[in-house]
Structure formats: C-alpha cells, structure tokens
Amino acid sequence: MSELQKRQIQLEVLRYNPETDTAPRYQTYSVPCLDEWVVLDALNYVKDHLDPTLSYRWSCHMAVCGSCGMMVNGEPKLACKAFIHEYADQIKVEPMANFPIERDLVTSVEDFITKLASVKPYLIPKEDKPISAGEFKQTPAELKKFKQYTLCINCMLCYAACPQYGLVPEFLGPAAISMAHRYNQDSRDGGRDQRQEVVASNEGVWECSFVGACSEVCPKHVDPAGALQQVKVASTIDWYKEHLMPWVTK
C-alpha cells in the first residue's frame, strides 16, 4: 500500500438512531481510500477504525447477495459496485430512497418481501406429474425467453429508483412484477392466471408509467421496465378478449 495511491475522501453519511433521533442527520468521516476501493470498503474502514456504531447491511462484496443497496450521490447503487475512482473527493451516502429507515443505512425490507411473495415467484406446474414420468424439458430458446429475469438479486435498487413507488407505496413495483413475468414466460409454468389477480390490479402493473429508471439502475442489467410493458400488453389483450370476445375460452 503506497501512500501515492491513497485519496482522502470525505464520506458524508446520513445517520439515524431510532432510540435517540427524531430525524436523520449527516455525519462526515474523513477516510483514506485506495483508488481501487468501492464505497463499501470506505464504510468498512469507518466501522473498523472511526466509528463502530455505524450500521449498514453487506455480505458478499461482489454484487451477488444484493444486501448493500444505498444511495451514492443520490443514485441507487450497490456499495460494493460503486468504485471510489469514479467519484470526486466528497461522496454522499444515504439509505435507499422510498424505504423507511431502520437505522443509519439500514432500511425496512418487509414491504418488498410481502409484495414479492404475493406474485407467487416459483414454478406452478401446468399439471402434476409423478417423478417417474421424468423431468419437465425445456429448449435453449424457451430458457432464453426468461433468463435475464432470473439474474435479479432482490437488491431493491429498482424500488429506490422508481418515483411511482415513492409516490404510491401500494404499487407492487418493478422487481416483483418482473419476477412474476419471469415465471409467466417459463414454458414449464401454468400459474399466470393466479399471478394476474395481483399483477393486473390497479396497484399492480397499472401504477407503472414507464419512467424506466428501474432498468437504468439495475446492477445485474435486468430490464424490469421492459417486463412491465410486456405485462401491460398481455393484460390489455386479456381484457379485450374477456370483454369483447367472451366466447373465446382461455
């Protein structure tokens, strides 16, 4: 570690202690950072050397676990993917927007978990098949159809980026709907009708106005905004079939 590679960064962190604070406040730490560090390394330095009371979530340090989502200079980022060399000497770190703050950079995830579970994000096979009948086969093309959506790590950055979720907290939101879309698109799945009850409601896909921010911030390059538009097209076709051609059985 040569001194030349080091940069003194002013890390401005939004802090909140539910036991003593009535509102969040900023605290600035002066952190000697190496140029190849990410914001998460800077936070770990603070925790280890400057202030052990700082709270934040992290685990894998390699953009797989989805725990360290936060606002870095106002942009939803994984702290483990936000490289120090891409920022000026002053970096502002805040908890993910649109979520209640539990403590410091830790936000509540209950709302998202409830919503994700409500769309039944698992395979609901079309018919029950005994194990002896063999596996459900799938071609590479059928896999490709939904594969990008399987890359979602539930980091919630898309919710932090979505202004409609911020304005209407009932909105089911980007990740939950694109996960529903992922299973709807799966050739082995037959659960779309069940998911549509939630997804095609007013608080479902119809709160989306295609701002597109969700897809821009996704650290795994999933395209939830695209998924939601496809869900709208399919739900619209459903509606016209149901109401204008009721004799067409599904």
């Binding site: 909140y16 969040p24 209640p100 539990e102």
Partner: peptide
Amino acid sequence: MSGKPYIREISKTTWFL
C-alpha cells in the same frame, strides 16, 4: 426491528426535479 422507522416524505409536486 426497531420501534420507529423514519419515513422520508417526497414532494408530490416537485419530486421530478
């Protein structure tokens, strides 16, 4: 989980700025 999570208000008229 703590007893009082803090909710940040968003301006309904100027959020897009």
